[in-house]
Design a protein around this nucleic acid. Sequence first.
DNA 1: TATGAATGAGAATTCATTCAT
DNA 2: TATGAATGAATTCTCATTCAT
Lengths: 186, 186, 186, 186
Amino acid sequence: MTLRADALRNRERLLDVARQELAGGNVALQLNDIARKAGVGVGTVYRHFPTPQALLEALVGEQLNQLVEIARQALAMADIQAAFTFMLRSTFDMLLCTDGGLSVVMLAIEDADCGTTRAKDELGVLTAELLRRAHEAGVVRRDLTAADVRNLVCGVEHAVRTWPDGDQNRSARYLDVLIQGLRQSG
Amino acid sequence: MTLRADALRNRERLLDVARQELAGGNVALQLNDIARKAGVGVGTVYRHFPTPQALLEALVGEQLNQLVEIARQALAMADIQAAFTFMLRSTFDMLLCTDGGLSVVMLAIEDADCGTTRAKDELGVLTAELLRRAHEAGVVRRDLTAADVRNLVCGVEHAVRTWPDGDQNRSARYLDVLIQGLRQSG
Amino acid sequence: MTLRADALRNRERLLDVARQELAGGNVALQLNDIARKAGVGVGTVYRHFPTPQALLEALVGEQLNQLVEIARQALAMADIQAAFTFMLRSTFDMLLCTDGGLSVVMLAIEDADCGTTRAKDELGVLTAELLRRAHEAGVVRRDLTAADVRNLVCGVEHAVRTWPDGDQNRSARYLDVLIQGLRQSG
Amino acid sequence: MTLRADALRNRERLLDVARQELAGGNVALQLNDIARKAGVGVGTVYRHFPTPQALLEALVGEQLNQLVEIARQALAMADIQAAFTFMLRSTFDMLLCTDGGLSVVMLAIEDADCGTTRAKDELGVLTAELLRRAHEAGVVRRDLTAADVRNLVCGVEHAVRTWPDGDQNRSARYLDVLIQGLRQSG
DNA sequence: TATGAATGAGAATTCATTCAT
DNA sequence: TATGAATGAATTCTCATTCAT
């Protein structure tokens, strides 16, 4: 079902404001606050997003779906090493560009929207398959599951985000550390 | 200044309760809540710990000081590789056994207690020196600062803590990944 | 003015849902809620029934008119004792079968629809006449007005409704108590 | 445990305001509203009375206990007819002087305070005993339980309260109707 | 005429902090 | 020094009503 023009406009505005909040370092989105900043009534926010979690998921749903797509592309690549790295880097970039929002959603036990659950599940399955091939090819440590990889990449993103400084290459270096750490040794 | 016997007893009880809160996954300590659970008045809590941050620092101050001591020991070790790993592992263990409390303190920009600031500064200096030697010896990536190492170990601890499962070896594996990732490649 | 077929259908559906609400013990009808449950837009509800009171009156208007008719029949009866009891019992049954809705309307100071006011007025006049004859015949206490009788029967119905249990004869017993209580003593 | 002087003062003021609300016909007490009218912070209200129901029970607890005491006195009376009437009249007066508050508490399925439950239970037991004797003596209809009597007296009080007019004898007349109605006929 | 999105007042509730006792 | 009552700002959430489509 398509939204009414003004409803859509409001929805977009709310997402914009929420994104700014996230960018400002505020992961705990407050619906009232967002309503005020977006210049709409509180009720409007609650109609669109019943809970902060729902808003967060709407905010990063796009990125989550892109990750699923990226996982599919990775699985289609011939070079499994390159594929795995591609997947990792893409995930890392997504996590960073959503200012921690995607990280919260990916690590949440419960989801507000079942579409989110579906995407997360699919991402998990695809990643597991990618990991299986990587294990077979001997390019990634065998003692790690798909969940481990997800946790670690979120952890490293956390490391980048908690200490914001001007160093532009820092995130790249941190990702490098992770990539090297995941490699099958010996 | 020494505390009166009952004041000391209260202080200890408060710290106990706060520790339990942390262990229960609640990093955002609520002073009122803690007062109630400790069976003391709110005023008493505020007298001892003016802010949640102060309580947190009191809670992990001991561990922070131990880390400083450990850093000193590490600097006294002949094998720099072993020393660095020893430092890293100790930090990681401390972070885990304080249920994220130490992590919050180590990453905080502002400290409540100047003793905390002093300890953190000293830890920074000692770690930097350790890192300098590690760089010289070529056992740790050259593009990382002491702050980077601290962030990364906190990030990996974050990865362990956000997805609690029964796997007992998980934290060991994650630390392994970090250690391998920090190694000077080539 | 006759309603369009679909408008009529909507109206009926709304009344049905409202009746279910009442039956469920919810006398405070919420127009939004009813719209949702009826599967129509809120605006539609407001068009048909500007206020909850209007909806309530529409819901029990039929019963109210029946009571007027019953009062007329009672006045046509020869045996005034039987007539009064007939009237009382009919009222009581109507109150019960509308789950308190009719009671609210009968006791309301202000009416939403002037048809309701007219019916209530007429009912009052007819009851007063019935009561006058009953007083003359010495079968009902002389110190009671038509309003008193109405209040008391509503009160007894309230007694039945507030404590719902399985006892099927309870309402009959309560009505008996009322009838006996209204009788001219001595 | 005794309350602090100011706490007690606040508590009394809150009860006063709540009583005025009831007297004004507002049985649905709103804690925020009461706080404002009493000139205290909202938190103070919530500390004293966690829910509107708790406030209501505090408001009429005294009367409820008096009813228990009255029931005991009634049981000590020799003339069971007089005793029953005394009990009924006392209950009715209490219901009226609490402006419907006591009625709500007496008919509530769930209580906020277990003291209320205890008092209600005891009142039920004592009334049942009183009723048993009245049945034996043949002065009250045999087909009524203690719960029935309570419901009916609440119902009649409802009849008095829903249609407030200047007639001072009305409540006395309504009570008379009830008393006569409850009498064992034949 | 029907729809349902938007509104926003306001009710309910929490909680960090202060301060009287 | 300890207590815990009081505060009231802030937040969450609901819902009756209006109005754009």
